[in-house]
Structure formats: structure tokens, C-alpha cells
Design a protein around this nucleic acid. Structure first.
Lengths: 342, 342
DNA sequence: CCTCTTAGCGAAAACGTTTGTGCAACGCCT
DNA sequence: AGGCGTTGCACAAACGTTTTCGCTAAGAGG
């Protein structure tokens, strides 16, 4: 009872007493060019409809060497930032009649490696990946396959695939400059995974702005080593213990900011009167927080869409996408988590 | 240069001067049972390693009639609630060596229908779907295919597939009772899509609690018709305009609560002094909101995991999963968005 | 009546696997 | 020497498509 064996080209052909090729051609709109009579075409279409025929895409893909599928590898889909990217990719893929195979690498490089292999087995036509970022060795293997790949958000060290990322340096620079303009001088930052490009760029932007303003960076004030909430919490605890305490903190990720807020709160302090905070990434809730969060908003939708489109072009052209990095601008959205000193 | 044609069973066989079947058997660990000599097996394995052989899962699936893939259809992956489910499903799938094909139905039934079709073409072995919920007609077609399907969160009208949902009625009852205990009597609610089971159940729980407390439900105080943020906003605006104004509002979704907060804020009012608010769904940010949100927390992880596991069992057993609905308990997390009247 | 088009379709190979069956060659027993 | 069991592998079909090539029959032209 379970499987009434879906109809196939063959079964349709058999019922009509014709050959599978004829059925295939009509159903693919090649009836005219192959001189299938209108009568036959009619019959085929009717029968297909009646039986609810759906072509087996496995067989089709095998034959055509085209799967119309792209892989999407994401460190954690439940992170709103990545979720937004995934959403946009899914929408774009649908528009182009592509399917997407999703893997959640759980922020672990080992899982990421495994995911890449799995997707290779499925012969996806292209790969979109937000790398965990610690290492990029395993991407070498992928490269040999000749399947296009586009990296999103974080570029792992030693990886020169085409990428789509936010303008991290610019964003961080804007944020830091803003803090400086507000009169802050002891500005700390809680960074993410230090080896990732996005982190490095943000750090660079931070340093650059500090330097331009002629204020020395106190190295004890740059803390953190992962993008997770816990790291934000620990980082902020450490910073609050420092003396003199920094007057402003720049958190390099949404989860980091969240953890930082938890630490501040736990200490009985308030933002921004006791300490100012700026985050990276925006989200709908930011507006309603106890201290509405000033943050460097990334355009997740653009990230998702642009990356899919670059990949799609590469797939269609048969060429790997241009190695160049595509930068999506960020915008500083000013809310109320930064205190102004005059 | 693009495609150096990945190695196949055949190519390995040719190089070694043996037959593809032998290669297949060794690589599948059936060497012993098929009396392939150790020498041959050695040679095969080495060659496979050297060429970086990866079996073509399309061909494999075609032959085996097993794709080791499940479809996941979600109304909006960027919604934290669904994102959490997706994450958990992805993790569970990986543990069972299953791949997942993702579709975002964009909260539109038409897209959902299309997604189902697409996934059927791919011959996924099972389907997990969080339905948009307006209608369940199109699920009938799926049923004929004999492929197991599990519905998550919302059960559309007239759909009797196995499902995994939160204990919506219980959760809503708890929340309403809590409001009553706090002394509220004029309690409004902003509902989501009225035809969905989750909405109906929440509404039922609300009514039940009200009735049990002997307070009449004022029908003008139940507003709303979608789960989107905008609906929450409009709903709250309407409620704030009512006279006498309700003292408490129960929003049936996370986005609804968000929209409601926006409306309150815009009106220059505060939660909970001017109006109390309870939400449905929990999220990490709730703690840090201006008025830390009291909410009925759903166990998204359990929802995701349980649904995958039910599906997996159905797949393995060859039977469709039990029609019964699996209920995941909710917990009321009390924060500070509800004012207590004595 | 013979050839040439052209319309209309079928046969078969191929994509890369898996698997049931067949079949040599070898050793062993009687 | 003949029979038998075992070892070690090859052949071929099948999964459901797509596509190249070619075939037949009818009509047109001479």
C-alpha cells in the first residue's frame, strides 16, 4: 500500500503503445521540432495529466549532468544573521528554479568538511558557504572538482575563492569614529574568531579609526575569541573588571553584543550610563531593547542575494566566478546605547 | 579546464583491469561476503583514494530507490522560531546521515504547493513541513505518493497527517490564567491566521481560562489575522484605541508581540505600566528588552528533533507515521512585561 | 513507375550505480 | 580419473531519463 510506484515515461508510453522517446520529447516541448503529430502530443499530455506524471529528477540529472541544485552551508541557521541570508538565498534560488541542499555546520570545521563532501557526492552545481572560518584547507579539495563556490561573510585564511562580504572595515571604522565623536577614549572591543577575515577587517577598521583620531589602542582592551554569546559574556566581564574601566565597548557580532549585555546587567550596571555599547549586525529586536542598540547593520538580504547571483552566473558561464571580493556596504544605525560625553 | 570529470566506478575498474561490480562491492564493504581477494580489495581501495573517488549519489539513488534526503518546507527561515526548528532538523538529519532539501514558502500557499511538487520530483524519502496553514488541500496529492510527511507547528484545516506541535491550548491557558491572577480582567488578544490549528488552539486556551475564571470575553478585543509583525502593530493600535482600553494583551506569536511593542512605543506608552503584554515563542533577546517579555516559550529544539525522528521512523518502517499528534509542552517564562494589580 | 522528400516515430545507447547469476579454475576426495 | 565444493571474479540487467540516428510510409516530382 505504501508505494503505488509513480508513473514513469515508460509506463505512459506503454499505455499509449508508443515509445518513451516520443513521450519525453512531447513533455519537454520538443514535439514540434521532432515532428510529433498533434494527435500524439495531445494523447501524451492527457495521459501524463491523468496519471499525475512527474519526471524523476534523479534520472534526469544523471543523464543531463545537471542537478539544478546548489549547496548551502551555514554555521548555525538559528542565528538570525545567517537565517536571513539563508532566507534570501532560498528565495533567489526559487526564482531561478534551483533547489537548495542545506547543511548546518554547527560552527565546527569538522562538520563543515563533512558537509562539503556530502554535497559533492550529490553533484550540486555550485556551493554557497558561510565558513566557520578557522581554516580553509578543505576548500582546496573542492576547487579541484571545478564546481563554482562562493564564500559569504567570512573568508577563511588562505582561501581565495570569490566572496561576498560586508564592508567590515568601513563599518567598524564608522562605529569607532562615532564613539570617538561622542567623546569616548577608552574604547574596548570584543572580537570574534581572530583568524576570520571579517574579524580581522573589523579590527583593522577599529584600529584605523583610533589611530586617525590619535588615540592609542590599549591591547588589554581587545578581548574575545569566538562569535558565540558566551564569549561576549566573558569578554564583557573581563572588560568590566579592568581599571580604569573602558567607557565604551564595540562588540563584533550580534551574539557577542547579547552576551555583553547579559554581563552588564548581571553586574547591576546600565547601558549607556555606565558603559556604552555598539554591536555588529542589526535585528528587529534591537529597537525594543532596554537600551536600544546602536549597531553596524549588515545588509543580510543583499549578502544572500548577491552571493546567489554570483554563483548563478558562474554556473551558467561555466567559468568560476571572478575571484574578486564583492563588498556590501553597512550602515550605522544610531539608537541609544551610546552615551555622549562632552 | 572546468570539469576534469570526476572518477567513476568504471574508470577505476578500467585502470585496474577488473569489472565495475568488483569495485562497487569492495567499496561497499561487501568484499568479504562476495569473496573478493584481499589483494584486489587493496588495489581498489588504493586507487579509489588516489583518484579521490566519490560515488555519484544520483546514480546510486536511482538504482537503490533511496535518496537519503528529506524535504523541509518552512514559511520563513528568517523567523527565529522557524530558524530554530530548521537548525534542529538539520542537526538531527546529519546524525542519521540524511541530507535536507530546503524550501522557503515565503508564507504563501502557492509557493508551498510548488515546493511540494519540486520535492516530489526529487524523490525525497520524507517531508517535514511547517505549513502556511490557510489551506491543506494540496497535501492530499502528496498523500497519494505514499511518502511519509510530518507536519510541524501549524496543522492546516482538513489535514490529518501526523504532526508535532506545541501544547498551544495549555500554553495559552497558562498565560491567560497568569494574567487573571495578576488581577487583569480586560484581556485582549492579537491572533495569527485564524484558520490555523495553532491559532485556534491558543484562542481556545484563552477562552477556556477566561471562562473558568468567570470573566466574559469581549469579542471586540480579539483582533488580528496574520502572524506578521505588521499585524501585531495594527492589532495593538486598534486595541489601544478601544475604550475602555484593555489592561493586558496576549500576542499569539513572536512577530506579533514585536509589532505590538512598536505600537505601544509609538503611542508614547510603556509596558507594563500602561498595558501588560504576553507573547508566544521565546527568544534570546526577550531578556534584554525594555520590558523583558513574559512569554509562552515553545521548545523549538524539541519540535524540530521530534518531528525529524517521527519522520525517520516512518521512513524506516515503511509505514506512514501514526496519525496521532505529538504535543510538546510549553513553559511560561515570567519576566517583567506584566503588571500586577492587587 | 521510379526516385526523392518529408512527416512521424522507434531503437538503442548513455549517465553511474547495484546485484543476481554464471562460470572458469583450482583443490580435494574417493 | 571423475565428481564436487570453493574461490574469485565478470556479465548483464536494471533504475528513469535524454538524444542521436535511422527507419518506414506516404506523397511529390519526373
Amino acid at each position: 500500500m505504501s508505494s503505488p510506484t509513480r508513473p514513469t515515461l515508460k509506463s505512459i508510453a506503454r499505455r499509449l503503445g508508443i515509445s518513451p522517446s516520443t513521450v519525453s520529447r512531447t513533455l519537454n516541448g520538443q514535439g514540434k521540432s521532432n515532428r510529433i503529430s498533434d494527435a500524439t502530443q495531445q494523447a501524451v499530455r492527457e495521459m501524463a495529466l491523468e496519471l499525475g506524471f512527474a519526471p524523476n529528477r534523479l534520472a534526469r540529472s544523471l543523464r543531463l549532468k545537471k542537478t539544478a541544485t546548489v549547496g548551502l552551508v551555514i554555521p548555525d541557521v538559528s542565528n538570525p544573521f545567517f537565517a536571513a541570508i539563508a532566507h534570501e538565498v532560498a528565495v533567489a534560488a526559487r526564482e531561478h528554479h534551483y533547489s537548495i541542499a542545506l547543511c548546518d555546520s554547527q560552527e565546527e570545521t569538522a562538520v563543515e568538511v563533512e558537509s562539503l563532501e556530502s554535497l559533492a557526492h550529490w553533484h550540486v552545481e555550485g556551493l554557497l558557504v558561510c565558513p566557520v572560518g578557522e581554516s580553509g584547507e578543505h576548500f582546496r579539495d573542492w576547487e579541484r572538482g571545478g564546481t563554482p563556490l562562493v564564500v559569504i561573510d567570512r573568508v577563511p585564511p588562505g582561501c581565495d575563492f570569490p566572496s561576498v562580504t560586508s564592508d567590515n572595515r568601513g563599518g567598524a571604522k564608522d562605529a569607532t569614529r562615532y564613539l570617538l565623536e561622542c567623546g569616548h577614549r577608552r574604547i574596548a572591543c570584543i572580537q570574534g574568531i581572530p583568524t576570520t577575515s571579517s574579524n580581522e577587517e573589523r579590527l583593522a577598521g577599529y584600529r584605523e579609526a583610533m589611530e586617525a583620531a590619535g588615540v592609542q589602542v590599549d591591547e588589554r582592551l581587545v578581548v574575545g575569541e569566538s562569535f558565540l554569546e558566551e564569549a561576549g559574556y566573558c569578554g564583557m566581564r573581563k572588560l568590566l573588571g579592568a581599571k580604569p574601566r573602558p567607557t565604551a565597548v564595540f562588540a563584533f557580532g550580534n551574539l557577542l553584543a547579547l552576551g555583553a549585555m547579559r554581563a552588564v546587567r548581571e553586574r547591576g550596571l546600565t547601558i549607556p550610563s555606565d558603559v556604552s555599547l555598539i554591536g555588529f549586525d542589526d535585528y528587529p529586536y534591537a529597537d525594543h531593547l532596554a537600551a536600544p542598540l546602536t549597531t553596524v547593520a549588515q545588509d543580510c538580504r543583499a549578502l544572500g542575494r548577491r552571493s546567489f547571483e554570483r554563483l548563478y552566473e558562474a554556473i551558467c558561464s561555466g567559468q568560476p566566478a571572478e575571484r574578486a571580493c564583492c563588498r556590501v556596504p553597512t550602515t550605522l544605525v544610531r539608537r541609544e546605547s551610546v552615551r555622549s560625553w562632552e
